[in-house]
Design a protein around this nucleic acid. Structure first.
Lengths: 208, 208, 208, 208
DNA sequence: AATGAATGAGTATTCATTCAT
DNA sequence: GATGAATGAATACTCATTCAT
């Protein structure tokens, strides 16, 4: 009653963020291919067709999520370079910051890394370019650190970078934000293990 | 005439393996959700409806792929235990063998690790149990190795196991079997980096 | 500030003619059924919903175009009767004037003749009545001319009228206003051919 | 009863011709753009989606209708050339045969001439090429007849051909196959008027 | 075993129209 | 007058699954 007399609270809010949030949730839970705009619309509380006031296609929705994530990723790259004066510590800063970002934005970042491949046309080109940029950034830091003998000469920067990214990308498949492992702690473990793997040799096999 | 009276050799073969192979290819290329049984049928050279002589549903097809992979995985676990007498070398053997297996069977193993989550009901329970078994195996070896002081005490076996598996699972997203990096070499890099990360501390940050 | 106090000239124009012109362009280019009001609104530079201040429905828009065209058509009929004192020359005048009008207003006239059939209810009745009027006008002139032996007795006025209108209506499907054939010339060709077909017998077949 | 015991008459017929026939009816009645596959499916007595066993898209359905019609049209061209030894009589034969064909297959031929423009890609190229072929055929006969002085020198073959085709195409908009005007008669009127228009001058205006 | 036709529920997308602001 | 958001019904098309033959 009161609500009505007041004069229609009819949700004058802009629905765009709501839609993006709903899409992130759905794409993450069901995967982009299996997710339906109906699911998104249901969450927002709007008819399926009404979504098209805010988006031009399902793919554009995915593209938008990816682009946003990439922006954040770029910021982290820059900040990491500023945070230290030697490549190994820059890498340390980058891995840690990225892991924390990942752990605190699991859904959207996971979509960026795992569902971006479903994009097509220009979108997929852009996402692939971003992926290469991400990979190249890590590889180049490893390379520089190796030149400065902070990283072992035997390390293959290309493969190492892939494995490091792989471990990072696995986070959304197993991490549960239930408080047992706070993001900072997991990020620390990840960063330490990664640096240890780059700077030390594997122990020899026991032959007793 | 002659051909017909002879009792046509035409496809007297059992189509089941063909169908599984086709499904593996399609599920890997397009992802389970986006893959269609039509694609599978086209590859096998059979009508869509005919697939149902061999499978009971699309999901069962996925389940079968996962089960097969898990069998192989179990064999590797057992062999690794037999291959060495101390936990760290058992882990080394396991990671190397698993990586080689992965690298030489990218499609099916990738489905096992990445598409299995789309299963439902009993199937998903089974696949999750297998995943836990896989994880528990690695974690327990780390644990034992830590008890024997082969692995640093600071290592968190649970998180470490997840990251180790994550790096492994990333392989199909970037590995190209084009000869530049033979499986043995990549598996070696992976194993060495992983062991190094478990047995050594990260270098301290430079403070100059 | 100043601009606002002044009482902005912004679009103080009446948008109705603009909307009609836009609709004519769109209906002609895409066909009534395939045309969308969004297209019309885009051209006018207004939101789709705003069109409803000027029209009550998409169909009404079409109806208005047809009515306007018919008015012009009525004028031409009257003028043709005044332009000559015998039916054949009245017909000549009518065909020529109609063709010129058609050739210089291809879009709107083409809609009148080719898209009017999609109207419903009262609208379709009106358009059909106009079509019958148009047809009856031509037929009656042919009839009179035949009575006066200006047109051959063998001519069937009903079918002849239909074919004459048909040739006329085809113009928008092939005429390009690029200057190669000026409207006057095409109208002349059309008129001459039509009159020749009414007043002369077909040549006999050669039997050599 | 008998029918049932016999063992399911379940329409073992091939539905393709039925679907084509239904599509012809619907496309003609509502126009291609406004026609829906639901309409077609309803007529055939099948679910909408089931149509896709026979067609690959709505457009392909239209394309098929057009291609079929064009084949018939080609046959008529060839037969007309064989039917007479001079261009005017060849034209006469062609116009008559085409008109009869049109009058006895109004729906499909009308779609060919009037809805083909909605095709896209290769289809529209093909249909346009066919249209040019049709036009070129008529124009070339007029040209030859003019060279042989069977047709007046003043006639513009290009524009004349367009008007002749235009009159033909108008047939489905007004012809009713109710027996009042048998196809042969209408075709005769059309052919005679057309030839008369090509071979004779228009009468001069009266100046009294 | 295999076919081929059919189902039915689903998908993304479009669009004329309405209406509170 | 104009906006922008929303509706609701429709559209072409897809696909796992079924089943008589």
């Amino acid at each position: 009653m009161a609500t009505k007399s007041k004069g229609r609270t009819t949700d004058r809010r802009n629905r765009e963020p709501e839609i993006l949030a709903a899409a992130i949730e759905v794409f993450h839970r069901k995967g982009y291919a299996a997710a339906s705009l109906q699911d998104v619309a249901d969450i927002v509380g709007v008819l399926k067709g009404s979504l098209y006031h805010y988006i031009s296609s399902k793919e554009e929705l995915l593209a938008r999520i990816c682009v946003e994530s990439h922006k954040q990723s770029s910021v982290i790259m820059q900040e990491s370079l500023d945070a230290a004066s030697n490549p190994l510590d820059q890498l340390r800063a980058f891995l840690h910051a990225t892991a924390v970002w990942y752990l605190t934005n699991i859904e959207r970042v996971s979509i960026y890394f795992n569902e971006g491949k479903w994009l097509t046309g220009d979108n997929i080109d852009r996402v692939r370019a971003q992926g290469r940029e991400f990979h190249a950034f890590i590889r180049s830091l490893i390379d520089k650190a190796r030149t400065e003998e902070q990283v072992r000469a035997e390390v293959d920067p290309r493969v190492a970078a892939q494995l490091i990214i792989g471990a990072l990308n696995s986070i959304p498949t197993w991490y549960r934000p239930d408080g047992l492992y706070p993001p900072e702690e997991v990020a620390g473990i990840y960063t330490d293990m990664t640096l240890a793997s780059l700077c030390n040799p594997a122990p020899p096999a026991k032959t007793d």
